[in-house]
């Protein structure tokens, strides 16, 4: 029975993950290194990589800042509507990214009040970087908050109060006591945010317009290459993204390992 289940798990992984990934790698490298590099170095591809990096970094920064703040408020403060806000955090997970993009179009698209206003101000939201950042923010918003809220609740306020009795002001408490206690959780939330931001496709496709060398991210480039029958190009760029995701996954696992060491409360090397 046990063997059967283990075999089934292997089979499941092989069919769903290992097989396709292996096939992708084989396809990407099938035409040789020169072709692979050619595809990856194409200006459209390079621009896509750059745009994805740009969006990811901005989204990461905003999420770390506001995600941490949100988690601090939700974990530490008691206020009206708290349960409602806590419930809303998971919303981006349950909304299809395409719908997310569509919501933004409804909000700031041509002919809408906001859209017209931004138009008169000569600020381009839709089919430009701001919209792409906004939708990516929307889909990645839960990661940092969900990671930090339970950690903040678990560590409690004792050590922060201790710092206060020792004369530390709120900023000193945050930098010297709270931040070190949640830094691995932040790292964990950050890696998830990066992975999701790099891979986002649906929402970005809807709001970007997929304009070549302008609003075409790496994932959109893969899609475009595929549609244009440039399979090798699609495979090559996909392989690069896969490699990055894989790298992030490894970092994530290292962080997890480190986190479990840090939170292990069992006394080690106790000197009597």
């Amino acid at each position: 029975m046990r063997r059967l289940f283990i075999s089934l798990v292997w089979l499941y992984f092989a069919a769903l993950l290992i097989g396709p990934i292996a096939y992708l790698c084989a396809q990407a490298s099938g035409e040789g290194l020169t072709v692979f590099l050619n595809e990856v170095m194409r200006p459209e591809a390079v621009h896509g990589f750059w745009l994805t990096t740009e969006i990811t970094l901005i989204v990461l920064l905003v999420n770390l800042l506001f995600g941490t703040m949100t988690a601090m408020v939700l974990a530490r403060q008691r206020f009206w509507g708290q349960t409602f806000l806590s419930g809303l955090i998971d919303l981006p997970f349950s909304v299809s990214p395409v719908i997310t993009g569509f919501m933004l179009i409804l909000l700031v698209g041509p002919g809408t009040i906001l859209g017209t206003w931004f138009g008169t101000m000569d600020i381009k939201i839709l089919y430009a970087l701001p919209a792409m950042i906004l939708v990516t923010l929307f889909v990645t918003f839960p990661f940092v908050v969900r990671e930090l809220t339970p950690i903040l609740m678990a560590i409690g306020t004792d050590s922060e109060e201790a710092a206060r009795t020792l004369g530390a002001n709120e900023w000193q408490i945050f930098i010297r006591v709270t931040l070190p206690a949640i830094r691995w959780g932040m790292a964990y939330g950050a890696t998830l945010t990066i992975a999701r931001a790099i891979g986002e496709f649906g929402a970005v496709l809807v709001v970007s317009g997929n304009i070549l060398q302008l609003t075409q991210t790496a994932t959109l480039h893969i899609y475009q290459s595929y549609v244009d029958f440039n399979y090798v190009g699609a495979y090559a760029v996909a392989a690069v993204l896969l490699a990055v995701s894989f790298l992030i996954l490894i970092v994530l696992e290292l962080v997890k390992a480190r986190t479990s060491v840090m939170t292990d409360r069992s006394p080690q090397m106790v000197i009597p």
């Binding site: 004792d158 050590s159 109060e161 201790a162 710092a163 530390a168 010297r176 006591v177 070190p180």
Partner: peptide
């Protein structure tokens, strides 16, 4: 404020700063 009262407070569950060494804990204030 707490900071201005010049009191020392010892918490039931120690409330030590886990990421700091013993010396850094004592040196904090």
């Amino acid at each position: 404020s707490v900071q201005q009262r010049n009191i020392g407070f010892v918490f039931q569950h120690y409330a030590l700063f886990k990421h700091m060494t013993v010396a850094d804990n004592v040196a904090f204030g």
